[in-house]
Amino acid sequence: MQFEFNIEGGDFTNAGTASSQVKKILKQLNVLPTDIKRIVVSLYEAEVNVVAHAYRGNILVEISPEKVVLILTDEGPGIPDISQAMQSGYSTASPHVREMGFGAGMGLPNIQKNADDLKIESEVGKGTRLEIIINLYKP
């Protein structure tokens, strides 16, 4: 199953809307609570990244009984040094964003921690594509 959501850059009020909707879907699909948590936390972090840094973006959620794939594509400044961005605590967020309680530099590392696979492609001045894969627990 596929679901699509749009994200508006700078709209912190609505950051988390997609995560909440995906969470509701996963609960209906009887996904294990621990897996739901990993998915929703990763998606929320990724969603906030787009809101904080990009102009606009799009989320594609693909759900199958084996895994959940989250693809976030944005139009934005891109990430010049991905390995640096992966370090915990590293952040380029503006003081304004930090004042709102975001931008602690934990976003990507936290996604990495929760996901089974994370692919980042980025082009400076154009945008970033994140592919997050979370395998679902099979009893």
Partner: peptide
């Protein structure tokens, strides 16, 4: 949950 089985729930 719509069903115990995820395929069926989908």
């Amino acid at each position: 949950k719509l069903d115990e089985d995820m395929g069926e729930a989908m």
